[in-house]
Amino acid sequence: MSTIDEQRDVKLKEIICEILELEEDEVTETSLFNEDHGADSLRAIEILASLEKEFGVVIDQSEMARMVNVKGVREVVGEAAGW
Rank of each mutant, 00 (worst) to 15 (best):
I45P: 13
G38D: 09
V58K: 15
E24Y: 05
E79Y: 00
L51Q: 04
E29C: 10
E24K: 04
F33Y: 06
H37K: 01
H37P: 03
L42P: 02
G72L: 05
E63C: 14
E18W: 08
I15C: 07
E63D: 09
V10A: 11
S50V: 01
G38W: 10
I19Q: 01
I19N: 03
E6V: 14
T28A: 10
E75W: 00
E79F: 00
E23G: 15
S62F: 03
M64Y: 00
I47Q: 05
Q61L: 10
E52C: 11
L20Q: 04
V27A: 11
E29R: 13
E21Q: 15
S50P: 02
E23H: 15
Q7D: 09
V58A: 13
I4E: 08
E35I: 05
A49D: 05
I16N: 03
K53C: 11
E6A: 13
S62I: 05
E54G: 11
E21N: 15
R74I: 02
E29T: 11
T3M: 13
A65Y: 11
E35D: 06
T28M: 01
E46I: 06
D9I: 02
M1K: 13
R8K: 08
K53W: 07
E23S: 15
M64L: 02
A80H: 00
A65E: 09
G72P: 01
N69Y: 10
K53E: 15
F33T: 10
T3K: 13
W83P: 01
E6R: 14
T30Y: 06
K11V: 00
T30P: 02
A81D: 03
K13E: 09
V77K: 08
E79T: 06
R74L: 03
T3F: 10
